[in-house]
Design a protein around this nucleic acid. Structure first.
Lengths: 209, 209
DNA sequence: TGGTTGTCGAGACTGCTAGTCTTGTCAAGG
DNA sequence: CCTTGACAAGACTAGCAGTCTCGACAACCA
């Protein structure tokens, strides 16, 4: 039963044209209520794991309805999170790598620290540590953003702002490594200042000689 | 009942001198058997969480005995791990920052990837994501190694190999950020080559101008 | 020697959660 | 009106952390 994967087909009868649909239609309102409730609980979570029962109750919905739309708790949580996250991960492109990098890093830092997002993101990561399926979804999610950063770096290298043999993957990993490390441990700031120093250090450290 | 915290006092009667000891003594063999069993299960774990029941059974020990020595499952796992980990985290000191940094990073990478350690470490991190107490223990554990790295950087800065206003914490976070990021996601290598590039990039990126 | 104390292995038990199954209801069609 | 399938509610299963109980036994003391 993988019909839960493409939620979009449920909004209209379009995809059902092949077979004369029978039975009651899925309730889109329930779908939204679950997503909203999940996001709210994620945001309010004080570290306590968010339970499916709690989500269903908060959404005024039966637990089975949750599992009718998503295959696992993790899928619900990630969907709730990405539902709100802007999909536009277009990196800036001013023609100056240091500037673009600074802008990109700042955007990343800020996005993760928006009030509701931060707690939710932490909770999802915690869940992903136990749920391989959710971990996969997380990897997909982050890969998109990672690709945008790679683009930025590639363009910079083509302009000669980075050494021809610069290890772009390692640079990207330093950015995301610092981000996740500080985000999860919370021992260091993720502010514009840090972003600037990081962009500066990476640009200078990998410049053409 | 926090007597389980200082396990060391149980190895001899020394600490018991203050009070005329009564009752049967704790069995050090059981202690070791638990640690060994935990480490074995951690190493063999294919991602499945290691249960206390399994540890106790593998050690031929009652579950209560486990909880007599350690306050939580996480504590057992971390103890099993650090028991084997070398405590000597003395950074090298050749007088050249780039060289020292490379050596330090390589050592870190290698230590984490020793056969039994890698799987065990990953499992402990997974558990730490849910268990705040274990997360604390992990922080303590990593702080020691982090301090050694800070030392290295401070010495380098004093020698003028880094800019006076270089952000040493950020540099340390770049090292450990990349390490954990790649270690946990497994998408990139943690080899000597990477260590060299990283050391080089960090040294050049934060050199005095 | 016999009493006291505290550990031992074994395993029952509680409490919590993910995920499934059941039941009775209701809406959308044929 | 009858079939189909979503719906809310909630019982149920299975797995695990951590606690509690039990009878056995070891170390020490009087």
């Amino acid at each position: 039963m993988s019909e839960t994967a493409n939620v979009e087909t449920a909004n209209a009868g379009a995809a059902n044209a092949t077979r004369p649909h029978t039975g009651r239609r899925r309730n889109e309102a329930a779908h939204r209520a679950i997503l909203d409730a999940a996001l709210r609980l994620l945001a309010e979570s004080d570290g306590t794991p968010v339970t499916v029962d709690a989500i269903a109750r908060a959404a005024g919905v039966g637990k089975q309805t949750v599992y009718r739309w998503w295959p696992s708790k993790g899928a619900v949580l990630l969907d709730a999170l990405t539902d709100r996250a802007d999909r536009d991960v277009q990196g800036p492109d001013t023609g100056d790598l240091r500037t673009d990098l600074h802008a990109f890093i700042t955007t990343t830092f800020d996005a993760a620290q928006r009030d509701t997002t931060a707690s939710a993101l932490r909770t999802v990561v915690r869940e992903a540590a136990r749920d391989p399926h959710l971990a996969d979804l997380m990897r997909d999610f982050t890969a998109t953003r990672r690709a945008a950063l790679r683009d930025l770096l590639t363009k910079g290298r083509e302009r000669g702002e980075l050494a021809g043999d610069a290890d772009l993957d390692l640079i990207a990993d330093q950015v995301y490594g610092v981000f996740w490390y500080r985000f999860l441990l919370g021992h260091g700031a993720l502010d514009t200042d840090t972003a600037e120093r990081l962009a500066d250090s990476l640009t200078r450290g990998n410049a053409a000689r």
